[in-house]
Design a protein around this nucleic acid. Structure first.
Lengths: 330, 330
DNA sequence: CTGTTAGCGCATTCAT
DNA sequence: ATGAATGCGCTAACAG
């Protein structure tokens, strides 16, 4: 009785063949004579042989693992991305090694550089500005990035944040809102895109925008910022939040402060997380197709790994989801 | 200029030492004369040498990676568990390889057996019954399981579902509810524990319990089941849902059906997901301490890996979170 | 079809 | 304090 796990050599000995034969057989790289294959089957079954993936990876250089780096896995936007990415990976016999950077850009570089040695490719969501990301292009592994990139030669998957924001602003404008505010999160690279979309719409109509900046893209921050927005000298009649999480917190606190949404104030967000549907009033938002983005990114990355050509930028179209948190002004 | 990544041999050559010296130095296994160490530092910096983790893992047998298997990563309960587990892992320089079984027990075995070869240990959340889990104990890797186990010699981390359920039932009883219903999810191993806790409380008070069984632990299923519960011949005055997700769906549909919560009906759930706080009325629930459970499980697993003795069962105490979805009956 | 040989990059005796 | 030699488990030519 061997103490440690059986190796390819044990199988070879038991089946009276060479290790090369065993290797080729278990990898389906080649067919053999019936008697050899039968002997192999028996030996493998008897010994309970399982290929050692580490040894295999070392030699082939492939780990069948994809690294996925997100900013906060408890944010439903990211869990959905992970869901989509994981599903595609699983369908192709790949595993996902998760990295949660917890909104801490400082450690991203070291983490990802280390990660890159253990995976066949990476999908990255980052708070870094493009100019601080040069090292990413130097990582010698296929990479797909979430968000658009101007210079860096890295394939990306991006939602149309500008367009989505435009839709939201347009929707509010058509509903007759006059004083629109934006509760943003300037640390995010997407914040300016959203801001740009809103401005494009409002400027065309000669409308102003009151801009507030949050410290975190969270519901707690939405709550915290609420009073300074709605209790100011000129209360907005609509607030666009950086994301649904902030919108949820904002709405709750607004209600606390005695405001009725959407009567006193319309509120909208981004992402279409599943929970915007269960609050009252239900949250109008822009569906950024998180799960699909995750799946798309993984599909794209696997293509890169296979050496297939891919588009530099894949855009995923957002979709306005109309719910009760917006109401026409008289 | 070398084409592929520098190896320990390149460093050895550049620093005029042996590979053994390099290996010992980079692993801090031994100190060397100042000139040697200096030469090594220079060579490593010049070449940009990085240790190949795969080769290292193959030889040491350690990957510094932990496998975490959950049922559905988009369920906030599980993202929180992942959050906690990941944080502890990260603090100890471990990575997390995620498996999302998507509520499909059939593929669990193969997935986990494969996973076990790539990691130093695993943390598993499973829908399998203990009698179908024997193979888990045979996996030759440290393992921590979520939920309690009677026979299997696997260390576990469990919430006190029975106790939590008792608290919920007791709370409703003290509020004066007379007709309590349970919207469960019998596929889960925790369902019977929760049911048991409820029964223990209600039986002592001579009260009945109307039991309904959902097909999935999701908000959509909560919505779907709602009408058959509240539009029956005898409408309950309180509903305990298997988890917060179901409760959220249930509450929404109940409102659709014209019922006012908590006036017509109290509703409670399990988990204390962050979103129960933002619905109206806010959801009374039992906080199962998801994030802490994840952290606890990871801490425990790392202890097992280090060869330290651990308790077989670690219980995490639940906590009732009182919110507006429950109201005293007159 | 099947076997021989030669490493992959590294850690680990066991010498010196 | 340092190095030579060995092998982890496997795949990849190349030979026959």
């Amino acid at each position: 009785m061997k103490s440690s796990a059986p190796t390819i050599r044990d199988v070879a000995a038991a089946a009276q063949v060479s290790t090369a034969t065993v290797s080729k057989y278990i990898n389906g790289a080649q067919r053999f004579s019936p008697k050899v294959e039968a002997a192999l089957d028996v030996a493998i079954a008897n010994l309970g042989y399982k290929s050692n993936p580490l040894a295999k990876s070392m030699i082939t250089g492939r780990t069948n693992t994809i690294g996925l780096s997100v900013l906060d896995i408890t944010n439903p936007h990211f869990s959905s991305i992970l869901k989509g990415a994981n599903r595609v990976a699983h369908d192709h016999e790949f595993s996902v090694l998760l990295v949660d950077t917890e909104e801490t850009p400082s450690r991203e570089r070291r983490t990802l550089e280390e990660l890159s040695r253990r995976v066949d490719g990476m999908i990255v969501f980052s708070r870094l500005r493009e100019k601080d990301m040069g090292w990413m292009a130097d990582i010698d592994k296929p990479l797909v990035f979430f968000g658009s990139l101007n210079e860096l030669p890295i394939p990306t998957v991006a939602s149309d944040d500008h367009g989505g924001a435009f839709m939201l602003a347009q929707h509010l404008r058509m509903l007759g809102h006059k004083r629109i505010a934006y509760l943003g999160f300037s640390k995010s690279r997407r914040d300016e895109e959203r801001l740009g979309g809103i401005y494009e719409c409002l400027n065309a109509a000669g409308m102003e925008l009151a801009v507030f900046d949050g410290e975190a893209p969270s519901s707690a921050e939405g709550e915290r910022m609420c009073s300074s927005i709605v209790l100011g000298a000129s209360r907005p009649d609509a607030v666009i939040c950086y994301n649904d999480l902030m919108a949820l917190g904002f709405m709750k606190e607004a209600a606390n402060l005695g405001l009725s949404i959407p009567r006193d104030l319309s509120v909208v967000g981004f992402d279409n997380i599943p929970y915007g549907k269960y609050v009252s009033p239900a949250l109008t938002t822009v569906d950024l197709q998180s799960e699909r983005m995750g799946a798309t990114a993984m599909t794209k990355l696997l293509a890169v790994i296979r050496g297939e050509p891919v588009e530099k930028l894949t855009k995923v179209a957002p979709q306005l989801v109309l719910r009760a948190s917006t109401l026409a002004r008289s």
